[in-house]
C-alpha cells in the first residue's frame, strides 16, 4: 500500500520521529507493516485520503522549496509540517495529526523501541522489579 509513496513516507517519518533515522531495514519493515495494517482496518476512503495527503505534502514541498519531501533537507520538511499542522483548515490539521499518529504507532509499539526508551511494563508488576 505504501510502496508508491515509500520515499516520501520515510522522509515524513524522519521528520515526525527523528529516531526512525536509526532504524535497521527490519525496523522500517515493522513500522510500515503496522501502518499498513492500521490503514487496512479503516474504510477504503480513509486509505485514499492518507495517500492523497502524502502526495499533497509532496506537492507543497515542491511549491515551497522546489523539490519533493523525499529529497528535502530534514529541517525544511519539519518547517513545512509545522505550517500544515497549524493550518486554518481543520481537514489539513487532522490529516497531519493522523499521519503523525500512524508513524508513532509504527515506531513506539515496537518492543525493542519500548525497551530502549525505558518502558518496563510487566505482568508480574512489582515482583519483576525485585
Amino acid at each position: 500500500m505504501l510502496a508508491p509513496v515509500r520515499r516520501q513516507f520515510r522522509a515524513l517519518a524522519l521528520a515526525f520521529v527523528p529516531e526512525t533515522g536509526s532504524l535497521p531495514p527490519e525496523g522500517w519493515m515493522a513500522l510500515e507493516q503496522v501502518v499498513e495494517d492500521a490503514l487496512r482496518a479503516r474504510p477504503r476512503s480513509l486509505r485514499r485520503q492518507a495517500l492523497l495527503l502524502i502526495h499533497l505534502i509532496d506537492w507543497c514541498a515542491i511549491l515551497r522549496f522546489g523539490r519533493g519531501v523525499g529529497r528535502l533537507e530534514a529541517n525544511h520538511t519539519s518547517r513545512l509540517l509545522r505550517t500544515l499542522e497549524s493550518a486554518p483548515v481543520l481537514l489539513l490539521r487532522r490529516g497531519i495529526w493522523g499521519l503523525r499518529t500512524l508513524i508513532q504507532m509504527g515506531y513506539y509499539t515496537q518492543p525493542s523501541i519500548q525497551r530502549a526508551i525505558g518502558y518496563r511494563g510487566h505482568s508480574a508488576g512489582w515482583e519483576a522489579r525485585r
Partner: peptide, 26 residues
Amino acid sequence: YFPFTTAKNLTGFGPAHSQFIRAFSR
C-alpha cells in the same frame, strides 16, 4: 499510559517531542 499512547497524546513532533518520550522512565 504506554509509549505509543503517550507519544500520540503529546502535541507536536520532532526532537522536542522525542525528548519527552526518550525520558519515559522519568
